[in-house]
Design a protein around this nucleic acid. Structure first.
Lengths: 237, 237
DNA sequence: ACTTGTCCGAATGTCAACAAAACGGTGGCG
DNA sequence: CGCCACCGTTTTGTTGACATTCGGACAAGT
């Protein structure tokens, strides 16, 4: 079993802040002031500072010298960048997964796709669909069994999460049945150990997500702002 | 021109430490004690701490809770991981470069390959060859013009640098003429805008480097240790 | 002999105060 | 009327001191 490692306040703080960002309490572009966060989270500025550095590594936050940290913005150009790189990574992940997958893994993958299918039929919460989708891809990277690849994925995962979340928030879920079918196709290719085809399939899947996302961001309303305007983290106090 | 932005002491400290690691003064596995570094660099522990976090982002350093930071180790498994992911990234970079390259870029690429060729003929310093090689790949990523891709490359660049450096240190340079030819082939493909071929070429080039490196690491001496044993950074005081 | 518990030195994690820099408003000047 | 320099406020960058944790050594118990 994996050892339950202690992580320190900085990680804890980072988790709380990440939660708030991913819940929309801290909207894109919002400033992340150290003293404010330190007060609300009841830790020192140093820990908050370190936590913000962690979030910057996750790609959820950008910071400039003497200007502090802000939640990243979500321009279509960013979507393009993130999903382009993600496509390359996921291609590699699928390729490797197809050559090293075990029966246990295959069962887990199938279970996730089934769960996704069921959730879609049950008209489940959009957040739940997103959770399952991300879980599927997490598992794919885990099967690929390459530490650096997983780390690279984690630097993209948070932005992806955020992108999908704003998409959900702005329009109706629209979680396509096509998408679930793409997942199932990928699992089948992996089961048959067709590495090259699996890689191409994964890359195409990501590209499809990217195009759908960009199309949505390009044609939506100019965004009149989030529902609450208190600046965030009120629920954490 | 790009603005020469202030970066703060943490970045400065990170640069100094990175230098020492890449010069071999701090060998792989060496512990990086905060108070020690703070004393030698004449900055506070906080800044050193932040700098070490930056180096961890670069993948040059690993750290555990309450156990401090150490220079990364160099197992063949690590080489495999790093170069596998690098192959995927470089494939994407070459593909994009082939579609967006300008004449100016092509001239710069050619110049670099020529410089590499000349340096090889002149039997130049191995470090110089490495510098030119890395410069070539940096330029490739820059031409690809994708911020996230560049960032992903930078998390791999330092380990690559370190790998090549220890290779140089252990055996004769052996910088192959084959390698230079591969660079030239890649530039030609990019010039002719053959994106797919360029991507495959770049991936193959990285795979070749990986195999050479692993072969060398697998057959070398058990490593009797570095030349100086003072623990590092003596030259910085 | 092996395990288990405790102590100690050393290093890291955390904190709150000090110093430097950027932002915004105000007033004077062209 | 517009522009620029100045200055106070706010926020971040940096520092040294305190608290916590780890690893090993030593000794007692089984």
């Amino acid at each position: 079993m994996r050892r339950a490692r202690r992580r320190g306040l900085a990680h804890e703080a980072a988790d709380r802040i990440r939660e708030s960002i991913l819940q929309g309490t801290l909207p894109p572009g919002a400033p992340l002031r150290e003293v404010d966060l330190a007060t609300r989270l009841d830790v020192s500025r140093g820990s908050v500072r370190e936590g913000l550095a962690l979030l910057e590594r996750d790609g959820l936050v950008v910071s400039e010298w003497h200007r502090g940290a802000r939640v990243i913005e979500l321009t279509p150009a960013d979507v393009d960048e993130v999903y382009t790189v993600r496509g390359a990574l996921e291609r590699l992940a699928a390729h490797r997964a197809a050559t090293r997958v075990t029966d246990t893994h295959l069962a887990e993958l199938s279970d996730l796709v089934d769960a996704l299918d069921r959730a879609l039929s049950d008209d489940a919460d959009a957040a739940e669909l997103l959770r399952l989708d991300l879980g599927f891809h997490d598992l794919l990277y885990e099967i690929a069994a390459n530490t650096r690849l997983v780390r690279a994925w984690w630097t993209l995962r948070s932005p992806v999460h955020l992108f999908q979340l704003t998409r959900i928030r702005r329009c109706h879920p629209h979680y396509r049945r096509d998408s679930v079918e793409e997942h199932r196709t990928l699992v089948d290719l992996i089961r048959r150990r067709e590495a090259d085809a699996a890689g191409r399939c994964a890359e195409a899947h990501v590209a499809a997500s990217r195009d759908a996302l960009i199309h949505m961001l390009g044609t939506d309303t100019p965004d009149t702002g989030p529902t609450d305007t208190d600046g965030g983290l009120g629920r954490l106090t």
